[in-house]
Design a protein around this nucleic acid. Structure first.
Lengths: 200, 200
DNA sequence: CGCGTTCAGGAGCGGGCGCTCCACAATGAG
DNA sequence: CTCATTGTGGAGCGCCCGCTCCTGAACGCG
């Protein structure tokens, strides 16, 4: 035994995430990350093997964090199904407009840039979205149990997926520079509609 | 006067669009486009000035085509408001699943990759989305006039935007490799909901 | 205290790409 | 036919970046 790893892995991943998020994958150089984090590039390659390896570490951690965020937002809310959806969408809007540069979501950005090149990105992303949909679908079931919704079992899943889809659409819209008020207005329209679904 | 432009501009833009769409901006080299189109890089730079110049020409043409597509799909349909929305979303799903590589939409991909680097991309994209929303909002007004919808004037615009948002969300989902049947199922749930909006 | 082991990080290499430059060819006017 | 003009495209330049390698340095054991 001799020296153990010294550089702060959290700091490195934080710096790398920031760079990848703002500039994208191709426009971020290892040297850039190295300078920002203070970790030499040799150490980075020793730890992650390649630029893609580092990115996937960042990406997985980010995606896991997003699922946790969604879970926390949905689970923390008490109230009707409709207000739960409204609350969820509002939180998403608040989150994606918190960065003045409107950088959007690292997962969606990366999917667009790297989806056709690195299947791992698609896989991790698909699992992440699937996890989010599950969280929302469980909330839909709660709504049914509470008598707030009257839909068939086959509609539970698509409804959960729909809500996640709307949240991602809002994030996408935020990238176009759409004002916060307008995003909130659309989110309100969407959430009001969501509560109106009835069995066919 | 002497020689006039000889290379086929349509062919060049087609080849460039295909390359940018499949590989993204950074991963597409001018040489690649030059080889695919048969146009020398000198001619490309003489005509467009830079890689970005060529890209913006491709991008603008693509965005204009998307607006025309949306207009054609919405205007060609006869039937109720709900079936119009269902038809629109189905066409979008059919369109974005027609490429086996699930390459998504060039506009959304480019926004994700280049939004933070080139403001022109954001501007053109924002105008494009705005145009699409206008088309859908006009269809909403038709629905109101036909007595199919009972909403306030302030809700017209967000409803049109919501429908465009859902279509973009579906395209986004298609990139994750979600099966067509599931996309259609979500689209169906979304369109059914859309017709249920009532005045608050 | 010395020594082997393992990590840290800067220097450098090789390849790729955006862009420029130049020689050439195609055109139309005189 | 001749010549000036302008599009054409390949060769090449300069730069950047991913990755490797090698020199040190920090640690813990004996």
């Amino acid at each position: 035994m001799a020296r153990i790893r010294r550089f702060n892995e959290e700091t490195l991943l934080d710096c790398a995430q920031e760079a990848f998020w703002v500039n994208g994958y191709d426009q971020t150089s290892i040297e850039q990350i190295s300078q920002a984090s203070g970790v030499g590039n040799g150490s980075i390659y020793a730890a992650y093997g390649s630029k893609l390896g580092l990115f996937l570490a960042v990406f997985s951690r980010y995606c896991a964090g997003r699922v946790e965020l969604v879970t926390a937002v949905v689970d923390s809310h008490v109230g009707s199904f409709e207000t739960a959806v409204a609350h969820y969408l509002d939180e998403i809007v608040a989150d994606c407009t918190s960065h003045p540069d409107r950088r959007g979501c690292l997962m969606l950005n990366s999917l667009a840039e790297l989806g056709n090149r690195f299947p791992e990105v698609v896989e991790v992303g698909a699992r992440t979205v699937s996890d989010m949909e599950r969280v929302l679908s469980l909330r839909v079931v709660d709504g049914i149990d509470a008598g707030e919704l009257d839909i068939t079992n086959e509609q539970i899943d698509p409804l959960g997926a729909h809500i996640v889809l709307v949240s991602q659409g809002l994030i996408q819209l935020s990238r176009f520079g759409v004002p916060v008020e307008r995003l909130r207005s659309i989110a309100q329209t969407s959430s009001r509609m969501t509560a109106l679904v009835q069995a066919a």
